[in-house]
Design a protein around this nucleic acid. Sequence first.
RNA 1: GCCGCUGUGGCUUAGAGGUAGAGCGGCUGACUCGUAAUCAGCAGGUCGUGGGUUCAAAUCCCACCGGCGGCUCCA
Length: 647
Amino acid sequence: MFFIMPLYYLNMQLLFIHSDYIEYEAKEKTRVAEPISESKERIEEVLVVFIAVEREDEQDARYVVEKASEETISVFNKVGAERIVLYPYAHLSSELASPERSIEILSGMEENLRSRGVEVKRAPFGWYKSFTLRCKGHPLSELSRKIQGRVKAGEIGVEKLSKALEAEEKAESHFFFMDTGNKGGLIKPEDFELDGSENLQKFFIYESEKRRAVDKVPPHVELMKRLEIADYEPSSDPGNLRFYPKGKLIKALLEDYVRNSVAEYGAVEVETPIMYSVGHPSLKDYLERFPARQYSMAGKGGKPDLFLRFSACFGQFLMSKDMGISYKNLPLKMFELAPSFRKEKRGELVGLRRLRKFTMPDMHTLCRDMKEALVEFKKQYELCMRVLEGIGFSPRDYEVALRFTREFYDDEANKEFIEELVRIAGKPVLIERWDQRFFYFVLKFEFNFVDALEKASALSTVQIDVENAERYGIKYVDANGEEKYPIILHCSPSGAIERCMYALLERAYLDMEDGFLPRLPLWLSPTQLRIIPVAERHLEYIEELLPVLTGIRVDVDDREETVSKKIRDAGREWIPYVAVVGDKEVEKRTLSVTIREESGNLSLEKKALPMDVPELKERIEEAIKSKPFRELPFSYKLSERARFVGG
RNA sequence: GCCGCUGUGGCUUAGAGGUAGAGCGGCUGACUCGUAAUCAGCAGGUCGUGGGUUCAAAUCCCACCGGCGGCUCCA
C-alpha cells in the first residue's frame, strides 16, 4: 500500500519464473567461469530466479543477500514451488558487479535459502549455457523485483514491478482518519484514537492489509440456504446463484424500494442492453484494463465479439451521447436496475457477498460543472444514508470511506466540503488520498459493511467522474450556445441488491451472537404474520379473518403437526408475528400473538399477547407503511407449500 | 488463475482398503393436539465425475468439476 520510492539507486535485479521444469547445460567457458562438476541439470516444479548482481550491491553484500533471499522466499511460498534454482543472468543489468563479488553474493543467497530449509540449486556462473524452461503461466508465475535501497540509512522498501500492476502503483495512496470535531483535517492512523469505533478499526485493517486469517464459512451462506433465499447453482458459472421464492421476493422488494427512492430524488428509469461490441472505441480502455474479467462471446471467425456489461455505465453513456442536452436539463439523472456481470476470480466468490452475476442499481447524473457536481454529490450522499436506513441499516452498521486525489483536497473549498461530509456522517470516517488520479474519478465515497468475519464490503457509493464525458463524447449546450462536457456522477444508492441481502443476513447473525433473536426487517420478511390453528376445527375462523388482513403477507400453518412443532418452525423461519388460534380465541374473536422483535433476548421466555385483529393489522401496517409491498409468492396454506431446500 | 482444505440419499452427517448407517425432510397410519421437535412403519444412496492402484476402493493415487479459506483482485 505504502510504496517507498527509491531516492538514489536500485540494485540487484531478480526475475522469477515459476516453472514446470528447467533444463540447462553448461556449454562453453567464459573468462570468469567458476569450476563445475556437473554440466547438465533438469529440475522440476521449480521457482527459477534469474539474477543480475549490480555494482552497487558490492557496497553492502550482506544486506543484499538477506533482502534478496527474503524476497525469494516470499515468492517461493506464494506460488507454492517445490525448489529453487538460482540462475545468474547478466543481461538483466548494464552495470554488473565484479564476477568474484557476484559469485560471493550468489553463494550467499544459496546458503541463506538452504538454511531456511529450501532445496536450492545454483546454475554455474560464467558459462555459456543452453536452457529450456516451461513457465506455468499463472498470474504470479512471472514476477520481477529490484532489491531497492537508499543512500541514507533507514527505511528500505521493495518495489514491485509486475507489469500489469504498474499503472496502479504509480498512484501512491495514504490512509487517514477524519473526525466530526470542528478542527477537521486529516489525522494519521498512528495519531488517531480508535476507541469506541471497533468497526472502523476493523474496516481500516481490512483496507490497509486486505487480509484476515479466518477459517470459517461466512455465516450468511448457511442462512441464505436454510431460509430458502438463495443457493449455488452448480450447473452455471460459479457466482451465478439461484433464488428461491422467498429470496426472489426479498430481492424484488429491495429493488422496488431503491427504484422508488431514486425516482423521488428525480431520476428517470431507463433500460440499456446487457451486451456490447468489443470493437467500440470508447469501451476499449475498460476492456484492455480488465480483459480477464469479462464474459465474452465468440463472434464471427472465432473472435470475441460481444461482452457482458459489468455495470450500466456504457449503456447510459452511449444513450447520453446521442441526446441533445441543454444546460436547462441538468442535472440529468438516469437510473437503471442493472443486471451486471463481472467474471471475478474464482477465489473471490463467496455466497451473496461477491457474485459474477448481480443486480446493480446504477444511477448517473450529468452535471454542468464541478460546483453542481458537488451539490448533487452531497444530496446523493444523504440519499444513500436514507436508502440504507430504509432498508434496515443504521449508521452504526456501516463505515464511511472518503477517497480523493491530493489535487482535489488541496483546494480549500473542497476541504470544507469533505469536512461537511464527515459532519453529516456523524462519526469518524476513513480517508484515502491518492497522490495522483489514476482512474476516472477525483472523489468517491462508500458506505462499507463489516461482517462477522471482519471483512468489509461496499454498499452505497458515489463517484465524481471527470473523464468519461469526453471519452464518450457526451456534451451539453450551455447558456452561450457552447458545447461542454458535463461532470458525471456514478451512484449506487444501496450497492448491489444481493450484497444488501448478504449484509442483512450477516447483521442478523451478529445479533444472534450478541444473544438476540435474528430477524429481517418486517417489510422484507416473506411471511409477516403466521397464524397457527390449535386444531383443524379452528381453521374456519381463520379463513374468516384473512379477508380483513389484506396488505399483509399472512400464512396459515394448517399442517397436521403439534402446536409446539409449528411454533418452533415459525421461529426457525424468523417470522415476526406468530398468532395462535384455539377455542379461547375463536370464542373471544381475538388472536394470541407473539412478537419476535419484543421477544428480543434468546433466553427470555416468549409471552403471547391477546390482540384483536384490527389492532394487529394496524400495528403491522404502521410498521411497513412507506415501504413497497408484494403479495405472498406462494400458497397461504403451509400444507400446500413446496420446500425448495431439504431439511 | 495459483496454494491449502473439502464433496457420502432432498438437507445435516457416521464410516479412514473387505461390497453403506443415522437424524431431519418425504410418504403411509395413529393422535385433534395451547407456545421451540407426538408415536409407529415405508421408500430413498452406482459415496461429485472420469481414470488408475488392488483379489477387493466411499476409503489410496491422478485429472476434472463444485464448495470453503488464503494469495491476488474488486472498473
